[in-house]
């Protein structure tokens, strides 16, 4: 067991840039936050504000970054070890792109087990398929033969199958209907409790992050504009004008409200 007092993840002054000159993008601009062990940490904000880039950097998929990332108190080196991926798994925003198109679901789920030398493959596949509410018959289909939501559940199953301690979840339920979303969110909460997991959850759905998370970081233009504590009732005390605008926008389509939006540049 790891010491629960050591934060699961610490990000210190992280900056990630793409391109140069006129086309320079400060995708992540001096961001710092700490995710205590066994916490669920929400990341919300503007489209293109750097949320996925942060998760990808943690997962070792962005090598050119400035600043520091610590996993359970230890600095992450640019090449991630096999042990790292046993501990940390990511569910990508774009499930279609992250599932091998020529592999059956069965093969997609068996592969990480083989890489990490797990035995009882059959049992584990059956178990995660049940956890994400996918009927067994889907095991022998290819990704293009599934609906969007079914593909997303395969992506979640693939992350869960290695029983990681930390899950980086990029919009895990935005492709799911609300009934399947409810089942997946309940499953994530139940697993977190049973297995003491830590989550970073990216979502644009404020109701989802307020329900799931203890803290929420709000991002805009690569910067962390506000860090919110979520109370027992799922309420936050937002002050930043951009966060307030997000809260307003989440109440549904209202033309008068939209006209009032300002670009917080």
């Amino acid at each position: 067991m790891t010491d629960p007092k050591i934060p699961a993840i610490t990000i210190n002054d992280l900056s990630i840039h793409f391109g140069s000159g006129d086309e320079l993008v400060k995708a992540v601009d001096h961001v710092s936050f700490t995710v205590p062990a066994q916490q669920s940490f929400g990341l919300v904000g503007e489209s293109g504000s750097g949320k996925s880039t942060i998760l990808r950097a943690l997962a070792g998929l962005n090598t050119h970054c400035d600043g520091q990332m610590l996993l359970e108190g230890e600095s992450l080196q640019s090449a991630r070890s096999k042990a790292f991926y046993k501990k940390v798994q990511m569910v990508f925003q774009d499930p279609y792109a992250s599932l091998h198109p020529r592999h059956t679901i069965d093969k997609i789920l068996a592969e990480p087990l083989a890489i990490h030398g797990f035995k009882n493959t059959e049992q584990r596949i059956a178990k995660v398929m049940e956890q994400v509410a996918l009927p067994n018959k889907f095991r022998f289909r290819y990704p293009h033969q599934l609906s969007g939501g079914q593909r997303q559940r395969v992506a979640i199953a693939r992350a869960l199958i290695l029983e990681p301690k930390i899950l980086l979840l990029d919009e895990p339920t935005s492709a799911l209907d609300v009934s399947i979303q409810a089942e997946i969110l309940n499953l994530l909460n139940q697993l977190r409790e049973e297995l003491s997991l830590t989550y970073i959850l990216v979502s644009h759905d404020l109701a989802v992050v307020s329900y799931m998370c203890e803290q929420i970081a709000v991002m805009q233009h690569g910067k962390l504009v506000e860090l919110l504590q979520v109370d027992q009732q799922g309420k936050t005390d937002a002050k930043d004008p951009y966060t307030l605008q997000l809260n307003l926008a989440s109440k549904g389509y209202d033309r008068a409200v939209i006209e009032q939006f300002i670009d917080h540049d």
Binding site: V44, G45, S47, S49, H204, Q245, V257, I258
Partner: peptide, 11 residues
């Protein structure tokens, strides 16, 4: 608009 933040979604 499933991947858009709520303000851009409405816009």
């Amino acid at each position: 608009t499933s991947a858009l933040d709520v303000t851009v979604q409405l816009q």
